[in-house]
Design a protein around this nucleic acid. Structure first.
Lengths: 128, 128
DNA sequence: GTGCAACCTGGAGTTCACTCCAGGTCAAGC
DNA sequence: GCTTGACCTGGAGTGAACTCCAGGTTGCAC
């Protein structure tokens, strides 16, 4: 099976080397396999996990919950717990998305107002 | 004209008292009027500004840029700069929104996969 | 067999955006 | 006039999530 160096894992996952080590220390990622010399050797499956962790992080899941998810993944019998955790998170993401859309509308209103303001001024300038 | 106490301003804007003072110190908010006794007295216009600042913050505008916007608002001739700043921010919000939607899709995929996994196991359990 | 880049560890430092605190002032009710 | 609660200031402290550092090891390329 193909394995990846720390640099490759970082490039492919989008996390920095330091963040990869940090996640491992924090128990978010299970201990990564090592070469004879002690270097980390990321498996295909590690990369898959990292990809999903990236998704969770980018949708705002806090580190603490990431750790909880990471722990659950080490035990096969926890699928229902994982589903519960992810459903809760999905709901949070949905709320955030809706909030963001609402604020975006306000922002667009303000911009529209500013633009009409600018036009009015230009008209006034021409007339003066 | 109606004015608001710090507590009212906090309740209506959604910022904490400490945050209101912090924003003023940081020059994000222009110096707020004071009563004879030295207490802050927020105007209708201050409340309007705060409402929009809340919108900018909730869409992820960093404090530094908020300050820049606050400064521009003190000079009437800066409308084009403000428009430029807000357009740039609107683009960032749009990108964030798209990113969030993409991640949401991944999350939903994972959930769907987990749910089908659960079903399969239940079927296996019944058959065994 | 030497140079050099990538990697290792434990722990300290950084950034952001607040949030809290101590010690004091102001104002309304009784 | 006294209590009480909201408010004031300057400055220190917090939590989250990294990020950086020093000092040392590994291993490939020449």
């Amino acid at each position: 099976m193909k394995t990846y160096t720390p640099a490759e894992a970082a490039a492919l996952s989008g996390f920095s080397l330091d963040t990869l080590r940090y996640y491992e220390r924090e128990g978010i990622l299970p201990p990564v396999a090592r070469t004879a010399g002690g270097r980390r050797s990321y498996s295909e499956s590690d990369l898959g996990t990292l990809g999903f962790l990236k998704c969770l992080r980018e949708t705002g899941m806090p580190i603490e919950k990431l750790r909880r998810y990471g722990e659950l993944c080490r035990d096969e019998t926890t699928v229902p717990d994982r589903v519960a955790l992810l459903e809760e998170h999905a709901a949070a993401v949905q709320r955030e998305l809706e909030g963001l859309l609402a604020q975006q509308a306000k922002l667009d209103d303000k911009l529209a107002w500013y633009r009409s303001e600018l036009e009015t001024r230009q008209a006034a300038a021409i007339l003066s």
